[in-house]
Amino acid sequence: MSGASLEFDGVTVRYGETIGVADVDLRIDPGAQVALVGPSGSGKTTLLRLAGAIREPTKGRVRVDGTDLSQLSPKELRRFRSTVATIYQDLRLVPELRVYQNVAAVRAGRRSFLGLLRDLFLPSGGSVAQIHEILESVGIEEKLYHRTNQLSGGQQQRVAIARSLYQEPAVLLADEPVSSVDPARARDVVRLLCDAAREREITLVMSLHNLELARDHFSRLVGLRNGRVMFDDDPSNLSSEAFTRLYSLTEEEMIEQGAHR
């Protein structure tokens, strides 16, 4: 499966009074790789949740490969979600299950319930071989049958990556996938994700707190602040002031911080 295009068209999300994202216009081509950067609360997660059809916009349209997500029936929505893989900062694996079970479970969207139970508890040689191959590509094939909670944090993260690839998605969303690993491993993981997505022509959208990583691995950065797009460009075109402005504290925040001192 090759990548899908993503289109945000005047998208606003409100959580009650709070603004999640405001009036966002974005177009992401099939197979493109985009990093979302911006301070805490700027709307990165919200944007990813919109792309995965986990949340509906309060205003505006989200289109994937030209299909307006708000027009999907519940059944179509499930099928759509099975084509979008997400990597979470907190991984969201089932630690009590074995590694291959965690990976296999992600195809739930394309399996009947009983079919999935069979994949998990009486797996066929073919599906195990496939999972083994994917684990090999992330360097943990020897953990295939281990209980997931017996793996280190970094290894578990590779399980999460393997899981997202086994889903064979058209879009891969990664929400701060490296904020809990050390700097050297963070670089490895980002490179691994970028390479895997490129190889499979998957559209990749990754939110990152680490600007250096974003600049080094992505040719397109989208800067968010207070739910608005501040810039959307190749990092070589972005001045250091642009980044300073993106992360600078607002007057309110400075007053708040002063009050805490």
Binding site: G52, S82, P95, E96, V106, R110, F113
Partner: peptide
């Protein structure tokens, strides 16, 4: 979290509950 992740990947309710939630309560 794991149940929500499965749901985000298109899993049905039975799967979300049986694979995403129940094993987490089982110990």
């Amino acid at each position: 979290g794991a149940g929500l992740a499965l749901r985000a990947a298109g899993a049905g309710e039975a799967t979300v509950l049986a694979i995403g939630i129940f094993p987490r309560a089982l110990p």
